[in-house]
Design a protein around this nucleic acid. Structure first.
Lengths: 109, 109
DNA sequence: AACCATCATCGTAATATTGCGATATGGGAG
DNA sequence: CTCCCATATCGCAATATTACGATGATGGTT
């Protein structure tokens, strides 16, 4: 089939999964790390930074925008991208609470 | 194409992306949450818990095993699954350092 | 106006993922 | 040994993802 059966799971589970999906590509990780590193609005140089074709880069940027984790504002001829701090924080918290709640005693058989 | 160009990115970026990929499905999130919640070895009842077909559940378990985040030990007729604490900790730390290093001042245009 | 730079979108090809029925495999019960 | 039970694997169909060239759209420059 190829389509996830989202109706079987809770909203929280689907949300976490789609967050993870947004991060599930090295190019998107690289974009986010670059935006975080420069800690500012980045205009233009993302294509050269990645090494992928312009169309491909644009597609990855679109997915990150759809996920809400970055935002792009038009600045004259080019577009400036930066982290969306609120959504970033939300990601951080959700992943943190997902990973945090485990006590690591090995009760396995 | 459909195949990621992993050679363009650093090892760390690829690793983070493949970790995220392991979490990028609500069924796998649900499996992990269930294992964490019961905090023990779980034998058998995963198929009924999920609502997916047995073959599909087995496939998701396989992916989680490949990612290393769970481990399965054969217990007689059935197989017992549980979280791999070391790998879980590693995930937690990597995601934490990924999300942690951002200062949330809004310097955007 | 004509031109160039930047980015988005379209169309397409290759590959991956998801899901399930059918079929193995391997261990216990009788 | 034969019959079930629990898992794994195979094979297939539907859909999603990744990648890129070509083409649009928009703004600035000359």
């Amino acid at each position: 089939m190829g389509a996830s059966k989202t109706d079987l799971f809770t909203q929280q589970q689907n949300e976490l999964a789609s967050m993870a999906k947004a991060l599930a590509h090295p190019a998107r990780i690289a974009i986010l790390q670059y935006l975080v590193k420069t800690n500012a609005c980045v205009c233009g140089d993302l294509v050269e930074e990645l090494g992928l074709a312009q169309a491909t880069t644009s597609q990855h940027l679109k997915e990150l925008k759809n996920a809400g984790i970055i935002q792009g504002t038009i600045e004259g001829a080019s577009v400036c991208y930066c982290i969306n701090p609120a959504v970033w924080k939300q990601y951080k918290q959700l992943f943190n609470s997902f990973f945090g709640e485990v006590s690591l005693e090995n009760k396995c058989c």
